[in-house]
Amino acid sequence: MSWLSSFPQMNEDTLRTLKKVIDENFRAFTRAYGDGIETLFTPLKWFLIEAERFTTQTPWPVIVILVAAIAWFASRNWRIVAGAVITLLLIGYFGMWEDAMRTISMIVVCTVLSIVIGLPIGIAMSRSDRLQSVVNPILDVMQTMPSFVYLIPVVMLLGIGKVPGLIAVVIYALPPMIRLTNLGIRLVDKDVLEAADAFGSSSWQKLKDVQLPLALPTIMAGINQTIMMALAMVVIAAMIGVQGLGQPVLKAIANQYFTLGIFNGLAIVGIAVVFDRVSQAYGRRLQKHLEVLHG
């Protein structure tokens, strides 16, 4: 029974050795391939810089009109349009315009990337139960792992800056896009698919003309959740150099600036509410449009 009493110590020694080996190998990998991996993300960095340049250098009346036009197109609701415009004007009035524009550009880029990555994965999952059984546990880990943990490997590989922050935000915000794309396509009425088969539709035609249009409201809900989760990461991403409303919040926490933290926190909330209302309204419009077409 002596081995039983020494088991915790043996286990601790084994774990210490294992951790040391993993850490050393990861550092060696970072030194060997870090620069090459960083080069792969150059187009992403260019996309983010251009988006930020557009939002920060475009005159504020143009941005307000553009946001109002997008809100009207998505919702056809004057209350939502007025809410979006008033939110932006208040952000500008309290001197947070530039940081807010940086945050909005980050969220837009993250959302676009999440759609580009998540939509094909969700479609592939909807076509294969085996792939779904493999991907679902990965998504579970991505959604339950503390958001700070995402920053560790990304920062070690790419350092501190915009791109590492963007990658961390995308990893955190991606699961809802994948899950709801998969769910939306799987919920398409089997009778509709059988009718498409009867008309001789190919697999691609069924996906493009039947499944994706009918799943679009659910996919829009996924986009909405992706935006909300990306905004939730704004303050945490500021810790590794992502500029925007998150940095003043961190500054306020470090220096006990109550009003600075509250105002910038409320600005994040305001942007989140605008994105949420606009995307939800667009999803409802799509749903009604599809009900009319298939009613």
Rank of each mutant, 00 (worst) to 15 (best):
G261F: 02
P61Q: 15
R76V: 06
Y172E: 06
I115D: 03
A232S: 11
M10N: 15
V278H: 00
I236K: 04
E50N: 15
G184K: 02
R76N: 12
L40P: 14
D189V: 00
W97N: 11
S126F: 06
I22N: 09
Q280K: 14
G261W: 01
T58M: 08
L157V: 08
M10Q: 15
A221R: 07
T226F: 06
D140W: 12
A28D: 15
I70S: 04
W72I: 00
K20T: 13
L293Q: 14
T14A: 15
D35V: 15
M239L: 14
A272W: 01
S203V: 11
P164H: 02
A74C: 08
K19D: 13
Y172M: 08
V155G: 03
G295L: 06
S203I: 12
P59R: 10
F258V: 14
G161P: 03
V109A: 07
V67D: 05
A281F: 04
M1R: 13
K206L: 03
V170M: 09
M96E: 06
T17P: 09
G265K: 01
A71T: 01
Q287P: 01
Q211H: 06
T56V: 05
F7H: 11
P120D: 08
P61A: 15
Q243R: 09
A281G: 11
R285I: 04
P153W: 03
Q132E: 14
V109Y: 07
V192E: 10
S105Q: 05
S147A: 09
V112H: 09
M228V: 12
